[in-house]
């Protein structure tokens, strides 16, 4: 599904991602962990095309997309959430989803076509997605009025709305309560059953270890360990990376 080959990105002297390679298999839930500053968010930015790598390749669904702009990669079926939530806060919750849907008639000339029916269908579809994450009753509020946890759910639902089959979630569990956490877990598992592939960056160890089939550990921009959660939890190198410095 996703292949990262020898990827490298430096800011000045700091190597945020340092000749890193790994793969994410189709249909899997892959976790990505690592101490703060290990290059996880930079990795997401490189994969989604918000940043250009200095070296290396990114291959999505067998296609080398290293030189593709972000919107083109998104169109290939890859969507993400952000560590600091990026929703369209002064737009309605429903519209946040509507704009992400694939058949949103967003061409300029389409404004002048009679597409009332189509629009209605799209709104219904968006409403379903909001129902899936349990915030359908907030559909007509501005997204800014949602609680932090609801905004996170909205952001995930928006990524799902694009129809992407590879979803990159950047710290979905950070800063939310247990009930919501379980809700997010169930949602991810349900989508995974439907065939979606996940790559999830997370600091919450019980959460990520419980949900992932495979864990990639990053430190100083390099993959230092790859394996099942059990294997990772017993890896000396991983323990050193975490305990040798500040514990997360």
């Amino acid at each position: 599904m996703l292949k990262v080959q020898n990827l490298h990105k430096a800011f000045g002297g700091v190597k945020a991602v340092n000749h890193c390679s790994f793969t994410v298999e189709k249909g899997s839930i892959t976790g990505m962990i690592g101490p703060n500053g290990a290059g996880k968010t930079t990795m997401f930015d490189l994969i989604t095309g918000l940043m250009e790598p200095d070296e290396g390749h990114i291959i999505i669904k067998g296609k080398n997309v290293t030189s593709h702009p972000a919107h083109k990669r998104a169109k290939m079926g890859i969507a993400r959430t952000f560590q600091a939530i990026r929703i369209f806060s002064e737009m309605k919750t429903l519209d946040n989803i509507v704009v992400a849907l694939k058949d949103h008639p967003e061409k300029m000339y389409q404004a002048f076509l009679p597409l009332k029916k189509k629009q209605k269908k799209i709104e219904e579809r968006a409403m379903e997605l909001l129902k899936d994450v349990g915030i359908a009753d907030k559909a007509h509020l501005n997204a800014a009025e949602l609680s932090f946890g609801q905004q996170k759910l909205l952001e995930i639902a928006r990524a799902v709305a694009t129809g992407a089959d590879l979803l990159l979630l950047d710290e979905p569990a950070a800063g939310i309560n247990l009930t919501l956490l379980n809700q997010i877990r169930d949602y991810i598992l349900k989508l995974n059953k439907e065939g979606k592939t996940f790559l999830i960056v997370e600091h919450n160890m019980p959460f990520i270890m419980g949900i992932s089939e495979k864990i990639i550990v990053l430190d100083y921009g390099q993959e230092i360990a790859v394996g099942t959660p059990e294997k990772i939890q017993n890896s000396d190198r991983v323990i050193e990376a975490y305990l040798g410095k500040k514990k997360e």
């Binding site: 993400r80 952000f82 929703i87 369209f88 509507v98 704009v99 949103h104 300029m108």
Partner: peptide
């Protein structure tokens, strides 16, 4: 819908690109 996309640019370009 076209105008709605313009608003997503105002709200958050990066998110809009990522969609």
């Amino acid at each position: 819908p076209w105008g709605r996309i313009l608003e997503t640019i105002r709200e958050d370009e990066i998110a809009s690109k990522s969609l």
